[in-house]
């Protein structure tokens, strides 16, 4: 980082915050503050939805994931377009016609207050905890790369978001997201282009693609049916459908985005374009990781991508061991580079025998590299007790900091900060809306005036932001807490989806049946979590099905009881 990078980084962030605060000033009624006066055109709805879903970790981890195990992660998103179609048909017109502020408000008109409060409580619990991690996860990586204190990084991101979300509400969130996503995608494409342009002079785009394919990185589709493994087409289509129905249909962080659409049509179009663009966008981000991988076939990759952690380990008695392993790694690389050049030659000659020979050699060398990297990780873990030696989240950002020209480094860091801010802003805004509308206005202070609720919503936004920052600093002390929060969505999403699907499609089911079915389903899911090792993707499906089936049974029994009593 030099002064140009710092200027670009801070100018970008300050301009976005100032723009969001200025453009959304003067919301004095609750419609303006929580729904942005329903003024968003479809393209802004779409950009907001995409910016909310893609957190900073998406842009840091996804290229690293492709670098390590190829593009198979893409399959996880195959259920998303189907969910967009289903929600466009059902949820969007329902929410718009009932003029709700939150998804949970609809549940009271369809069922009753206790079902609405239960769903709102589940949401506040899972999103309240995960907003802390949305801030913490990128802070950890950024603080390592910039050599900042982790708590200062957390407070920096949290405070920037707090300024415009508290002052401008939903309008500020969606106004800033369209620019944040533009910066994010622009920066990512520039980074990918840089990786490609730094390949040896004569390698074409197609050849880079073929090299990646020969190295097994273009494993886009796996047809085997196994719902406990998230990386096959069926898990993506079935498990992904349930997950994304719940996330986009029943999680206020997303529902709040399309409730701001200016009409049913505009909200629908926003969802439809998300369904059209999401998979190609993930393809591009994953492919950037592949380009970095191909780049490192011809250029020396770091033996361990978290440079700062390796430097710390080099201050200990293990320094000699690590240095020896590193020079061994360098030797292996020279051999690999030669084979990679042979592979390109074989591809050009279109000689299948030579291609296979080169590929087998490279696979053997990669095996050696993997062993050395494993040994280095063991040494670092021994040198720094309790260190997390997973370094795939650092692959992309280390590449950026090492190989991108000054100016672009600042831009790419602005990308990571912007992505963290965009998704945090939606989450804080949704937490505040749900607290204000479903709890405070409904059950605590039902008869206050409009301006009072705007003020209360501002306080709730600030309160959740401070809670998120405090939770992030606790998370820094507890690795297993982070893992728990990362799966907490899976624990509640299935049940919430079951409640909403019963509401949308099963007129037969009434409030008592769905309420008790949801509580039993949640107990079943928690039992599975504590006492079985079932795949998390299955929780969404099981939770949802248990709610629907049980609610049906309870309703049937209740109806029989009423019939008997009336005879």
């Amino acid at each position: 980082m030099n002064s140009i990078d710092w200027v670009i980084l801070f100018t970008t962030l300050i301009l976005i915050v100032a723009y969001g605060t200025w453009k959304s000033r003067g919301s004095r009624n609750i419609d303006g503050y929580l729904l942005g006066n329903k003024s968003l055109p479809w393209w802004n709805v779409c950009l907001s939805i995409m910016a909310t879903q893609a957190s900073a970790i998406t842009f840091l981890s996804t290229p690293g994931q492709a670098y390590e195990d190829g593009m198979r992660f893409l399959q996880f998103y195959f259920g998303l377009p189907l969910a967009m179609v289903i929600l466009s048909i059902t949820a969007v017109p329902l929410y718009h016609r009932l003029k709700v502020y939150t998804a949970y408000e609809y549940l009271e008109s369809r069922f009753d207050l206790k079902t609405r409060s239960l769903a709102a409580f589940f949401f506040l619990m899972l999103r309240g905890l995960s907003v802390g991690i949305t801030i913490y996860a990128p802070s950890l990586i950024l603080s390592t790369m910039l050599d900042w204190n982790i708590n200062i990084t957390t407070i920096f991101i949290g405070s920037l978001v707090m300024i415009y979300t508290v002052s401008g509400g939903t309008k500020a969130v969606s106004m800033t997201q369209k620019y944040q996503l533009t910066i994010i995608m622009g920066g990512m494409i520039i980074a990918g282009w840089t990786a490609f342009s730094k390949l040896p002079d004569n390698i074409t785009f197609t050849e880079a693609f073929q090299v990646a394919g020969e190295m097994g990185k273009l494993n886009l589709i796996n047809l085997s049916f196994d719902l406990s493994d998230r990386y096959n087409i069926w898990s993506g289509l079935i498990g992904g459908l349930f997950l994304f129905l719940s996330y986009f249909g029943a999680d206020q962080s997303q529902v709040g985005r399309y409730l701001g659409g200016s009409s049913i049509g505009q909200s629908r179009l926003g969802l439809i374009f998300n369904g059209l663009l999401k998979i190609p966008m993930q393809f591009v981000i994953l492919y950037i990781g592949i380009l970095v991988f191909v780049f490192y076939q011809f250029n020396q990759a770091p033996v361990f991508h978290n440079q700062s952690m390796k430097d710390k380990a080099m201050q200990t008695e293990y320094a000699g061991d690590i240095a020896a392993l590193e020079s061994e790694y360098d030797k292996v690389f020279i051999e690999k580079k030669k084979e990679a050049e042979n592979l390109v030659g074989a591809i050009r000659a279109d000689n299948p025998t030579l291609i296979q020979q080169s590929r087998e050699s490279i696979e053997r060398i990669q095996g050696e590299e993997k062993v050395i990297r494993g040994q280095v990780k063991d040494k670092i873990a021994a040198a720094i007790p309790g260190a997390n030696t997973l370094d795939k989240d650092y692959v992309f950002i280390t590449f950026v900091m090492t190989y991108l020209p000054h100016g672009l480094i600042g831009l790419l860091l602005a990308v990571v900060f912007s992505a963290a801010m965009a998704s945090t802003a939606s989450e804080l805004n949704a937490l505040a809306s749900t607290t204000a509308v479903d709890i405070y206005k409904r059950s605590i202070a039902p008869n206050a005036n409009d301006y009072h609720y705007v003020k209360a919503s501002k306080w709730f936004t600030a309160g959740w932001a401070i809670f998120g920052m405090m939770f992030a600093s606790i998370a820094n002390q507890a690795e297993n807490l982070i893992q728990f929060v990362n799966i907490i969505g899976s624990l509640f999403y299935g049940t919430i989806l079951g409640i909403f699907l019963s509401a949308f499609y099963l007129k037969y089911i009434k409030s008592n049946a769905v309420f008790f079915a949801a509580i039993i389903a949640e107990a079943v899911i928690l039992y599975c979590y504590f006492f079985t090792d079932m795949a998390f993707l299955l929780y969404n499906i099981i939770g949802c099905l248990v709610v629907v089936v049980l609610a049906y049974v309870i309703q049937f029994i209740e109806n029989q009881g009423i019939k008997k009593a009336s005879q």
Binding site: L74, G213, I221, L269, I272
Partner: peptide, 28 residues
């Protein structure tokens, strides 16, 4: 107060993408 063609478009684009990705997986 034609949506269905938009819904079909989403499904067809998804299907085309899956076919392209399947082709890439098997031929590279």
């Amino acid at each position: 107060e034609r949506w269905s063609s938009w819904y079909w478009l989403v499904m067809i684009v998804l299907a085309i993408q899956i076919i392209i990705y399947l082709f890439i997986t098997t031929s590279f």
